[in-house]
């Protein structure tokens, strides 16, 4: 089965280049003719993840795996980790979102919205070691 795998690095505090990986992923999906609605959800999740790494994470990477029927997005970092995942997953909970949004960064959406936009979502984190977020997108999904 043909699987296309790409890996991009995310650098700590690099606001200037944050988003580049998501743009590359987005353009890859466009070239493959994936439906715009799905590309949009992948792009939003990717960018949100990238911003999380840049703001709270440390160094990290974003890996995309494209299979004929699904897309897997894995975002991993070696940053500070999340002490209370259920709290971080609460809608409206944010550490600095509003401020960053006014600066023009970030979609101001956070983890709950990544979960909302992905078809499957898993997160694990160890304080002091880092965070992994795995998101899956079905190419046959009707989700808008």
């Amino acid at each position: 089965m043909a699987v296309l795998k790409k890996e991009f690095h995310i650098h700590k505090n690099d606001f200037f280049r944050a988003g580049e990986a998501s743009i590359s992923i987005k353009n890859l999906l466009k070239a493959l003719g994936i439906r715009p609605q799905i590309i949009r959800r992948v792009a939003i999740c990717g960018y949100e993840g990238e911003m999380n790494v840049v703001m709270h994470g440390g160094d990290g990477k974003i890996i995309v795996e494209i299979c004929p029927e699904s897309i897997l997005l894995l975002i991993t970092d070696n940053g500070s980790g999340i002490p209370d995942i259920p709290l971080a997953m609460t809608k409206g909970y944010s550490t600095a979102t509003e401020k960053y949004r006014e600066m023009g960064f970030g979609a101001g959406m956070g983890l709950p919205n990544m979960k909302k936009n992905a078809d499957s979502f898993a997160i694990d984190s160890v304080v002091g070691e880092g965070t992994n977020v795995r998101m899956g997108f079905s190419l046959t999904s009707k989700k808008e």
Binding site: G19, S22, K26, A43, G46, G106, A107
Partner: peptide, 11 residues
């Protein structure tokens, strides 16, 4: 346009 597609500038 790339940035809008990433969900930026929704405000």
């Amino acid at each position: 346009l790339e940035k809008i597609e990433l969900g930026m500038f929704r405000n």
